[in-house]
Design a protein around this nucleic acid. Structure first.
Length: 227
DNA sequence: CCGTGATCATTC
DNA sequence: GAATGATCACGG
C-alpha cells in the first residue's frame, strides 16, 4: 500500500516501489484519495506527482534529489504497448548562473543520473489513464560505458555554451543526451553571461533530456521488453 | 518568478 | 512514426 513517509534505505524504497507493480493508476490514486484526470493534456506531470506521493517524496520542486538522504532521483518511464518509452526523460535544467554547471563533474546532470529509481508506467494511448498499470521498479546507475556516452554529449553541448554558441545548440545535438527549451512558453527568458564580452544577455531556459533510444535500451536490458 | 513533474503539438 | 520545440500544472 502507498505510504506518505520518506523511506530510510534503498531497500525500503525499492520494496515500497515494487508494491506498485501491477497496480493501476486508479487504484493508487484511490488509496491516496486523489481524483484521476480524464487525460494528461492539462495535467502533464500528474502521474509523476502521484508516484511521488505514493513513495513519500517530500522535496517539492527544489533542485535536489527526490530522496535527498538517499541520493536517489525518482522517474516515471512511460512505455507504449511494445515496452518502448513514449517520451524523452527530463534530467535537469541548465543553470546559467553556475560556472560549475558546465563541467561534467560539477553538473546537475551527472548528479541526477548517478542513481535513479525508474518506475515504468503503461502509456499506450489506447488505454484510458485510470486503467494504466505500473511495472516493476528498477534502481539504476549508469554503467561506465553509459556514463562515458552521457559525458561525451554533455561536454560537446557545454563546450558550445562556453564558447558563446548556446543559441546554436539545438535538440539535434547529442546521441543520448540533448538540450531543449524548458519553460512555461517560448516568451520566457533567463539572463546569462555572454561568453565573448561578459555582458548580460537574454536566452530561453533550457534543460537536459535523455533520448528515448537511451531509455529504450535500458528497458530492453533490465526488463527484457521491447524490440 | 522559477524549478520539477512531465507531455503536447507541430514539423520533419 | 518520430523528434523537436513549445507548453501545462503546481509548490515554494
Amino acid at each position: 500500500m502507498p505510504r506518505f513517509s520518506e523511506p530510510r534505505s534503498e531497500e525500503a524504497l525499492l520494496a515500497r516501489a515494487r508494491t506498485l507493480a501491477g497496480r493501476s493508476i486508479a487504484e493508487v490514486a484511490a488509496a491516496l484519495g486523489l481524483p484521476v484526470p480524464a487525460d494528461l493534456r492539462h495535467h502533464k506531470g500528474w502521474v509523476g506527482h502521484l508516484v511521488e506521493k505514493a513513495l513519500g517524496v517530500t522535496a517539492g520542486s527544489a533542485p535536489v534529489p527526490d530522496f535527498a538522504s538517499l541520493g536517489i532521483e525518482l522517474k516515471t518511464l512511460p512505455l507504449d504497448a511494445e515496452g518502448v518509452p513514449t517520451e524523452t526523460t527530463f534530467v535537469s535544467s541548465l543553470d546559467f548562473g553556475d560556472p560549475a554547471a558546465l563541467s561534467w563533474e560539477g553538473s546537475s546532470v551527472r548528479k541526477k543520473l548517478a542513481r535513479i529509481l525508474w518506475l515504468p508506467v503503461q502509456a499506450d494511448p489506447a488505454v484510458p489513464l485510470a486503467e494504466r498499470r505500473f511495472g516493476n521498479a528498477l534502481l539504476w546507475s549508469p554503467t561506465p560505458e553509459e556514463e562515458a556516452r552521457l559525458r561525451a554529449d554533455f561536454e560537446e553541448i557545454a563546450g558550445m555554451i562556453e564558447a558563446g554558441f548556446v543559441e546554436r545548440v539545438t535538440a539535434h545535438r547529442g546521441k543520448v543526451l540533448q538540450l531543449r527549451p524548458k519553460g512555461a512558453n517560448a516568451r520566457q527568458l533567463r539572463w546569462m553571461v555572454d561568453a565573448e564580452d561578459g555582458a548580460l544577455a537574454r536566452t530561453a531556459p533550457r534543460a537536459f533530456y535523455l533520448r528515448r533510444s537511451f531509455t529504450a535500451e535500458l528497458v530492453r536490458r533490465h526488463w527484457a521488453l521491447g524490440g
